[in-house]
Simulated assay, not measured.
Amino acid sequence: MLVCVTGGTGFVGAHSVAALVREGAAVRLLARDPSRVEGALRPLGVPSAAVQVVTGDVTDRARVAAALRGVDAVLHAASVYSFDTRRYPELRRTNVSGTELVLQAAVRAGVGRIVHVSSVAALYPAPAGEVTAQSPVGSPKEAYMASKAEAELVARRFQAEGAPVAITYPPALIGPYDPHLGDQNARLRNELRGLMPMWPLGGFPLGDVRDTAELHARLLLEPGREHGRDPGGRYFGPGRYLTTRQYLGSVGEVTGRRLPALFLPPAAMLPVGRAVGLVQRVWPWHIPAEYGAVYICAAAAPVAKDVPTGGLSPRPLADSLGDTVRWLHTGGLLSARQAGDCARPRSAAAIR
Rank of each mutant, 00 (worst) to 15 (best):
R87Q: 11
A109W: 04
F11E: 10
T132K: 00
A350L: 07
G322E: 11
G203Y: 05
L68V: 12
A268N: 03
V279G: 01
T168I: 11
P136Q: 05
L173G: 05
G202H: 08
E23S: 15
G202A: 06
V276H: 06
F236A: 03
G98A: 11
T168V: 14
H286K: 13
E290W: 01
A78C: 00
L20F: 08
T255P: 05
G162D: 05
A301L: 03
A25P: 03
V37G: 12
P164A: 04
S118I: 03
L242C: 12
P302K: 00
T212I: 09
V254G: 02
R245A: 15
M198N: 08
R337Q: 15
A217C: 08
W199T: 05
A149Q: 09
R225L: 15
A293R: 12
L91R: 07
R32V: 12
H329L: 07
T85P: 13
K141A: 15
T255D: 06
V307M: 01
V54N: 03
A26F: 07
A65C: 02
H286Q: 13
T85I: 00
D57K: 02
A304E: 09
E90C: 04
R32W: 08
A146G: 12
R63D: 10
V64C: 02
M145K: 01
E222K: 13
D323A: 13
